[in-house]
Design a binder for these strands. Structure first.
Length: 289
DNA sequence: ACAATATCCTGCGAGC
DNA sequence: TGCTCGCAGGATATTG
């Protein structure tokens, strides 16, 4: 499932589309759009892509919105921007093509761009969402406002992390998955972070000591960076915009490895449910606090 | 105020 | 072989 590293991999590869115009959009899964597809289409066509960025697991396209105003002096044109907000949820990803032939069976939406390029949105489970909002509405979107710290940003320091994690209670993995605390971590990287930090995913946060917090801080960043370096984790369907699978699945130590030997001590990894998510861990290497 | 549960959806692997 | 069933899961809406 696309988490921060997978979304980041796609965003970096899509940068060459900046400056292009969205000529036409079509879809066979119109439910995914906000506002409704007909309105979305009207508002997005003939707009230029100004920026492509990531926030948490969202891809944010900044688009031009050319408006004409009748002012006292005559006809002038004013520029405003709007944002296209995309969430891959479980199985979404973009693919680049030179024509409109679907590259995968599960391609749901097509964006015809200037320069003879098509952007295809593939999504097996149809959970992905595409939302177009004005710049002003974007600033007020609750799902964006509520997002927690960006773990790879400069201002995510150890002090900052300690401040946001210390007052929390409950299980460690639940906190790692909570987008309101730290944004971008999903089930794969949550298991990997707990394993690398040597902490049991069901540990109570309030029982973690300063050393545990520091290990966690380091491993949040290490594991996410490693995921990006490896161009994502492919378990099932994730590929980059050229259709190439990632490499991070080859070096996972915990995620979905229950029943297999621990790469450090050889103990058989166990599994349990935490926050409705399957969680794999080493009962010997990962201390439960 | 919070936590637990249902919801969306398709593909895959297990079991018979 | 071919069916059914359970499971996988991010975020949100709903219920307790």
């Amino acid at each position: 499932m696309p988490e921060l590293p997978e979304v980041e991999t796609q965003v970096r590869d899509l940068q060459f589309l900046i400056g292009r115009k969205i000529l036409e959009v079509s879809s066979n899964t119109k439910k995914a759009f906000t506002p409704r597809f007909s309105e979305f289409k009207k508002r997005i066509e003939n707009k230029k892509i100004l920026a492509i960025e990531r926030r948490a697991k969202y891809i944010i396209f900044t688009l031009t919105s050319k408006l004409t105003h009748h002012l006292s002096g005559g006809l002038t044109s004013a520029r405003k921007t709007q944002k296209l907000l995309i969430h891959f949820r479980m199985t979404g990803h973009f693919l680049i093509s030179k024509n409109s032939i679907p590259l995968e069976k599960s391609v749901r939406h097509f964006f015809k761009l200037s320069g003879g390029t098509w952007l295809q949105f593939s999504d097996i489970r149809k959970f992905g969402t595409l939302r177009l909002v004005s710049e002003r509405d974007f600033q007020n979107l609750p799902e964006i406002r509520k997002l927690g710290a960006e773990p790879l940003s400069k201002n995510f320091t150890f002090t900052k992390f300690r401040e946001i994690i210390q007052p929390k209670t409950g299980k460690l993995k639940s906190a790692l998955l909570d987008q309101k605390i730290i944004a971008g971590i999903g089930n794969i990287y949550a298991d990997e972070i707990c394993f690398a930090a040597g902490l049991h995913p069901a540990s109570q946060i309030e029982k973690l000591n300063p050393c545990d917090i520091e290990k966690l801080f380091c491993e949040i960043r290490n594991q996410l960076r490693k995921g990006i370096r490896n161009r994502g984790t492919t378990i099932g369907e994730f590929v980059d915009v050229r259709g190439k699978i990632g490499k991070n699945q080859n070096s996972l130590a915990a995620y979905r490895r229950h029943g297999k030997e621990c790469k450090i001590c050889g103990t058989i990894l166990r599994k349990m449910k935490i926050s409705q998510r399957t969680t794999s861990f080493c009962p010997k290497c990962q201390i439960r606090k």
